[in-house]
C-alpha cells in the first residue's frame, strides 16, 4: 500500500514555488500591493480620525499663521524633457507678486497636465517661499502634419504611448530625424484634444530596433504608414509600411522586429553586393521569406 501512494499524480509535489513568469510575479505583486494598500488606507483612516479628534482645536490657528501674505521667492522647475521655466511662467501666469498661499496647486497641476506634451506633473509648496514644479514629458517617436479647420498646417508629434501633442520648445534639428506618420486618422475627443493613437508602442519598438541595428538605413525612413495597422497586433493582416528615401516601401509584420530587421539588413547587403539600386519594395512580413521587387524587373543579372 505504501508504494502505491508514490504512484498517483496527486503525490507529486505541488508547492507554491517561485513565480516563474513576469505575469505571475506581477499578479502577486499587485495582490500584495492591494492588500497592503487596503491595510494602510484603513490605518490612515483610523489614524486621521483619532488625530482630528485629538488636535482639532489647536491646529486651525497654526494654519492661519502660515497663510499670511508671503510672495513666491523661488520656483524650482524639474523636467525630463525640453520645457523650460520661461514657458512655465507664461503657462501658469506666475509673477513675483503672486502670493504663495493663494496659489491653487491642484489648478496648476491640472493646467500642466492638460498640455499634451506633459504626461504627469507634480506641484508642491516648500514653505515659506518656494514652489516646486516637476513634470514628466512625452518623448516623440513620430511626427505628423495636419491642418486645422482653417486649413493652417499644424505640426504634431506622437509619443510612444500614442499621445498626440504639439511639440513645444523642441529644437528643429531633433525633430528632423523623426519619420512622419501616415495612414492614420486623428480623432478628436469631446474637449477638442486629439485622442491617442493605438499601437504606437509597437511602432516605436520597430523604429527603436531599426535605429539601433542599422542607423544608416533608419535615417532614410521618411514615413511610417499605419494604414494596415490599427494597433491590434493579433490581427492577421496587420502590417506596418515604411517609405524611405531609398526604397519605396518596406513592409513589416508587427511582431519579432529583431528578426525582420536582421533579414532586411541581409537583403540590403545582398542587393548592394549585386549593385542594384532600384529596389521598389521589400516585404518582410512573411514568416520564412521576404519579397523584394525591383523597379526594373529584368535587372542586370545574367
Amino acid at each position: 500500500m505504501s508504494n502505491r501512494k508514490q504512484l498517483d499524480w496527486r503525490d507529486l509535489p505541488q508547492g507554491n514555488r517561485k513565480k516563474t513568469t513576469k505575469v505571475a510575479r506581477r499578479r502577486r505583486w499587485l495582490r500584495v500591493c492591494k492588500t497592503s494598500g487596503l491595510t494602510l488606507l484603513l490605518c490612515a483612516l483610523v489614524g486621521g480620525f483619532v488625530y482630528s479628534l485629538y488636535f482639532a482645536g489647536s491646529s486651525i490657528p497654526q494654519m492661519d499663521d502660515l497663510s499670511r501674505h508671503q510672495p513666491v521667492r523661488q520656483v524650482t522647475f524639474i523636467t525630463d524633457g525640453v520645457l523650460d521655466e520661461t514657458w512655465l511662467f507664461r503657462k501658469i501666469g506666475l509673477t513675483s507678486q503672486t502670493d504663495i498661499s493663494s496659489i491653487d496647486i491642484q489648478a496648476i497641476k491640472n493646467t500642466l497636465e492638460s498640455v499634451g506634451q506633459i504626461k504627469e506633473a507634480s506641484v508642491s509648496r516648500n514653505l515659506p517661499g518656494e514652489l516646486i514644479v516637476s513634470v514628466r514629458e512625452c518623448s516623440p517617436v513620430l511626427r505628423a502634419v495636419t491642418a486645422d479647420d482653417k486649413g493652417r498646417r499644424i505640426r504634431l508629434l506622437i509619443a510612444r504611448d500614442g499621445t498626440v501633442f504639439e511639440g513645444i520648445n523642441y529644437p528643429a534639428k531633433a525633430l528632423r530625424s523623426l519619420p512622419y506618420i501616415g495612414g492614420v486618422r486623428f480623432s478628436t475627443a469631446e474637449d477638442g484634444s486629439i485622442l491617442p493613437i493605438k499601437g504606437m508602442d509597437v511602432v516605436a519598438e520597430l523604429l527603436e530596433t531599426a535605429r539601433i541595428r542599422m542607423p544608416e538605413i533608419y535615417s532614410t525612413w521618411t514615413v511610417v504608414s499605419c494604414d494596415r495597422f490599427s494597433g491590434d497586433v493579433s490581427k492577421p493582416d496587420a502590417l506596418i509600411k515604411i517609405k524611405s528615401k531609398l526604397i519605396e516601401e518596406l513592409t513589416f509584420k508587427p511582431e519579432n522586429f529583431d528578426l525582420q530587421i536582421e533579414r532586411l539588413a541581409e537583403i540590403i547587403q545582398f542587393v548592394q553586393a549585386e549593385h542594384r539600386t532600384d529596389i521598389l519594395s521589400i516585404d518582410l512580413s512573411y514568416a520564412d521569406q521576404a519579397v523584394v521587387s525591383y523597379a526594373d524587373p529584368r535587372g542586370p543579372r545574367s
Partner: peptide, 10 residues
C-alpha cells in the same frame, strides 16, 4: 510575378 523571393532556409 515581378518579384523575387528570398526563401530563408528552414
Amino acid at each position: 510575378v515581378d518579384q523575387e523571393e528570398f526563401a530563408f532556409p528552414s
